[in-house]
Design a protein around this nucleic acid. Structure first.
Lengths: 336, 336
DNA sequence: GTGCTCTATGTGAGCGCTAACACTACCCGA
DNA sequence: TCGGGTAGTGTTAGCGCTCACATAGAGCAC
């Protein structure tokens, strides 16, 4: 009382009804007289009553909480996704509980999922961009609504994903259209699906144009690795166009090129991926690809809610969100 | 059963003990025979039993969940803080529920806090960097453990904060030590405490050196606003040193200076704040200030846990985390 | 009037857990 | 021998809510 605040029975007593009627009002049940409804609402307001989610979760077996498992929520992509998910979920009356993991191996993921299950979350969204994450999901109880984001396209799990391949293809084509003979690619870590998709799109576009893809440069999303790759690329006079798997890699590449005195875009064109807010202020402003995180969040949440409402079993739903090319100043035709 | 998984009584039956003994094992109660404990653990493992957090929350009145209220978790600072909080909380057995808000007015904040209270969170961390947020906190039930991060230093609420003033002072002094006559400042939004603290530190350092602070340039944390301020500063020949309130502003400034052909650091030195991972790859690598987000997260969580355990009433605790200067290449002595 | 439906409300049980207390051994000192 | 601790365990009563069902009254046809 003093500590725990008023309960439903307190409201009921004040309104002169039974606790069940209060419950009905709270849950928007139809068969309640308008006058009664008003009286109950007044009592709720007067007491500052707040329904106890734990009690509700106990009896219904499901809380109004969605668990999100993500790695490294400091990165722009995951952070944006998380924020968008939270906003969308809040609009639907759901809270979002984060379970971020340092590593994406199955032990970490399983542990995070366990934690969520202990709290009886209504559903789980796994931002699982790597191979090893998928395995952890196989062992999950089948009755827990689940959606993966940017996960393994080959696993029979509901999936929402940014169309990495299409984005990368568009970027590569964009560079070819500008007149470049070929396009070099600085990739993300090889075990990420995002990374794989971007490599695939790049390769496809080149092959479609009858070009043999040049050797791949392996990065790890960080500006530091972009810088290292950039130092190599800067020394190769034949390089005129570079597609980096994300904007941070592009930043590192840009700096390396700058240090070697190679002008962008006059001598070399550079394109990124993600459209971080700062990309427009790189030197020069970066042409990049913008994934629609809001759309991804909306799609995954809707997919999850469908499962929650229908009791479960989304089966192997999947949805792909197309990204858009954002053209800025870092692309120009090659010299000569 | 099929859906809800085994309950404590199921474990008890299998282990041949009472459910209460299972409860004791789970909660690390001392008076349980080693042999019994083992039997119970075996039963738990065999059934794949998972304690029901909702039931526990119902009876104890507190869940093992900490609510975090934050704005714009896409920004590097808040995102890092959130991630660090989650990691720290997980280590203590707590889950973290995010309630991000679009605006930091009291209606939004109150709504987010309400949502957390409905779920009976054990405590709340509010990342409340602006004035209006504080008001919302005044009306909060007194018995809810609460910690604010980067909040109003003048409110009687437990507070953990990065020492903005010290950081800004150090940066400014660093520039003066390099030989600059004065330091210009591009600030963050005026209603953020972070912003105010950085302005204060900058001003203090200048005044201490007997220098009248030059006019303040107002930004809003974004690279875009940094760019706009940079365009003005670039045209002023007397400007030789700029301290920007965060790294993104610095990026915008750097680009503007670059466009105007002003060399950094040869002609103008630039310093940022936050040490985003990319700062080392700006052109040139950015000298900046690194706040220790992990330390902030640890401090706030510890403060919160103290309140949770002791029943409440942290009173007006406060803790300040000193940031460190990270010297890179964007600072040099002025010409001549 | 009787019997029916339909709406508005109340009653009781129980979700899975913890807290408080009760109980049973058993050991120890007097 | 017996009281009195103390470790180990069981029993009972709820926490605040929803679900399934019971009930009461109103409306209406015959």
């Amino acid at each position: 009382m003093a500590v725990h605040g008023p309960a439903m029975t307190d409201v009921a007593r004040l309104a002169g009804v039974s606790h069940q009627t209060v419950s009905r009002v709270l849950n928007g049940h139809p068969n309640v007289r308008e006058q009664t409804r008003l009286r109950v609402r007044a009592a709720i307001a007067e007491l500052g009553y707040r329904p106890n989610g734990a009690a509700r979760a106990l009896v219904t077996g499901r809380s109004q909480v969605i668990g999100v498992v993500a790695q490294n929520t400091t990165l722009y992509g995951p952070a944006s996704l998380l924020a968008a998910l939270e906003q969308t979920a809040a609009a639907e009356g759901f809270a979002v509980s984060v379970g971020s993991v340092r590593d994406l191996d199955h032990r970490s993921i399983s542990a995070a999922v366990e934690r969520h299950l202990a709290h009886r979350v209504a559903g789980i969204v796994v931002i699982a961009p790597v191979e090893s994450a998928g395995e952890a999901l196989e062992r999950l109880p089948k009755d827990v609504p689940l959606v993966t984001v940017d996960g393994d396209p080959h696993r029979p799990v509901p999936l929402v994903t940014v169309d990495q391949v299409a984005g990368a293809r568009a970027v590569t084509q964009h560079l070819l259209d500008a007149g470049h003979r070929t396009v070099w690619h600085v990739s993300g870590p090889s075990d990420w699906f995002d990374s794989a998709g971007r490599i695939e799109g790049w390769r496809e576009a080149l092959l479609a144009a009858g070009i043999v893809p040049p050797p791949l440069m392996h990065g790890d999303w960080s500006a530091a690795s972009g810088y290292r790759c950039g130092q190599m690329l800067a020394r190769m006079p034949e390089v005129t166009a570079i597609f980096t798997a994300n904007d941070h890699l592009a930043l590192g590449v840009l700096r390396a090129l700058h240090e070697f005195g190679r002008k962008v875009p006059a001598e070399i064109s550079v394109v990124g991926f993600d459209d971080v807010p700062e990309a427009a202020y790189f030197i020069p402003p970066l042409t990049t690809v913008r994934p629609d995180f809001d759309a991804v969040a909306r799609a995954s949440l809707q997919m999850l809610l469908t499962q929650i409402v229908s009791g479960n079993g989304g089966g192997a739903l999947r949805q792909t969100i197309a990204p858009t090319l954002v053209a800025r100043d870092s692309v120009a035709p090659p010299r000569g």
